[in-house]
Write a protein that binds this DNA or RNA. Structure first.
Length: 260
DNA sequence: AGGACGCCCTGTTCGC
DNA sequence: TGCGAACAGGGCGTCC
């Protein structure tokens, strides 16, 4: 489920725990997650180097090395980062472990192996090559309105389209639409400019608030939809039974009474 | 262009 | 209570 708030939290974690430390060795227990590189290639690129900067674009985390190149991490559905001091074992399902000269480590953990690990020349080069849209938190209100022009599909699939805007997945698109009170099936073309303004405010609020909560649902308001994603759950606002709509193999949750 | 669908992957939840 | 099926969903490729 790592979406923008989760990845931003991982970025801050990497920034705090791994920046500036010289890399001693790289271990890759799951080479299948490497894209267009090999364990040897990754080792060559990382060993003896230091991470000097972190950036995030949508759901992608970039860690730039002092060589200029950067490590690219995508967390799929269940990925996360783990850090530990010298002597600590790597967590279960560690797919990439970076060990620093002081013995501490940074682990990329992904139980379901749905993530990806890559190398790139620069973050913008990677973003361009993968045709990612602008980062959802970097958008101002006018930019969102401009992106909406000419879209034919539903507002839910638009928000989740990483080539349109990057960072929003199933859970947070539901949350944003719940807050803005739009039915996820509603066509983007039916949204007037004041509707798009309302959507933009909901998007900003939800993503910023989730980042502030460290992407931990337990630290988010109980009035949020994501606290109520279980089956047969009820709308925290009006008490109506929540509805589901299957789109592209994913379940949209929404309140049929509050969202129009 | 956009949406359906299958695939990858495995821990968790569901239904019988 | 136990077991297998279904589910969770990000991204990609394929098809219509």
């Amino acid at each position: 489920m790592p979406e923008l708030p989760d990845v931003e939290t991982y970025r801050r974690q990497l920034e705090a725990k791994a920046l500036g430390r010289t890399i001693r060795a790289v271990h890759v227990p799951a080479p299948g997650l490497l894209v267009e590189t090999t364990p040897q290639g990754l080792g060559m690129a990382l060993a003896g180097r230091r991470f000097i900067r972190t950036t995030r674009h949508g759901k992608y985390l970039f860690a730039t090395l002092d060589s200029g190149r950067c490590l690219v991490l995508h967390f799929g559905m269940t990925g996360r980062l783990g850090c530990g001091p010298r002597g600590d074992p790597w967590p279960c399902y560690t797919r990439l472990a970076i060990v620093f000269v002081d013995g501490s480590h940074l682990a990329y953990v992904a139980p379901r192996k749905l993530g990806r690990i890559a190398l790139a020349d620069t973050p913008p080069a990677y973003v361009a090559a993968h045709r990612l849209g602008p980062d959802a938190l970097a958008l101002d209100q006018d930019s969102l309105a401009r992106l909406a022009q000419g879209r034919r599909g539903s507002v839910k699939s638009w928000l989740m389209d990483q080539t349109a805007l990057a960072g929003i997945g199933n859970v947070y698109s539901d949350e944003i639409l719940y807050r803005a009170r739009f039915d996820p099936r509603r066509k983007v073309s039916s949204l007037a400019s004041r509707d798009l303004a309302r959507l933009w405010r909901a998007l900003r609020y939800v993503l910023e608030r989730a980042v502030r909560a460290g992407a931990d649902p337990r630290r988010m308001p109980r009035s949020w939809l994501l606290r109520h994603r279980k089956r047969n759950a009820h709308c925290p606002r009006c008490g109506a039974e929540l509805a589901q709509w299957r789109i592209g193999g994913r379940n949209a949750r929404y309140c049929p009474r509050c969202q129009r």
